[in-house]
Design a protein around this nucleic acid. Structure first.
Length: 118
DNA sequence: TAGCTGACGAAAA
DNA sequence: TTTTTCGCCAGCT
């Protein structure tokens, strides 16, 4: 199992978000809310999404396509280079998308609170 | 400077 | 159970 090192390295909330997102295994997804909860701010799901807004400018690529809302809907696809890119990437990882929603969402769901015990 | 918006979610009604 | 409101906090107008 992977363990995130929460240290002084984690300066900002955003950086922690990026770190968690990068740890999402291929072919798995998680939600904004769970990331926020994992980071200690259960009600800052919006901030997680907002953080994704700046993920493109990060040096290291952030697999933002593996992050969806709690319903498994690709709510942020429109924020990618192309609206279809998010779905393309997910399908390339073996995740089925139906009507902008992840098929078998709970089946591919990756819970940071379960997988990343501190 | 003040107010609005936003890739969300949970609690309240 | 479904719908509405509020909170989160940074960036933009």
């Amino acid at each position: 199992m992977t363990v995130i090192k929460i240290s002084e390295k984690n300066k900002d909330f955003f950086d922690r978000v990026y770190q968690v997102v990068r740890l999402i295994p291929k072919g798995r997804v998680t939600s904004y809310g769970f990331i926020g909860r994992y980071l200690g701010s259960a009600r800052s799901a919006r901030m997680v999404g907002w953080a994704m807004n700046g993920c493109a400018k990060e040096d290291e690529a952030v697999p933002a396509h593996r992050v969806v809302n709690r319903s498994g809907v690709l709510s942020g696809k429109n924020n990618f280079a192309t609206p279809t890119m998010m779905q393309e990437l997910l399908e390339a990882e073996g995740i089925e998308i139906k009507d902008d929603k992840i098929v078998g969402f709970k089946d591919v769901f990756w819970d940071p609170n379960e997988e990343l015990k501190l």
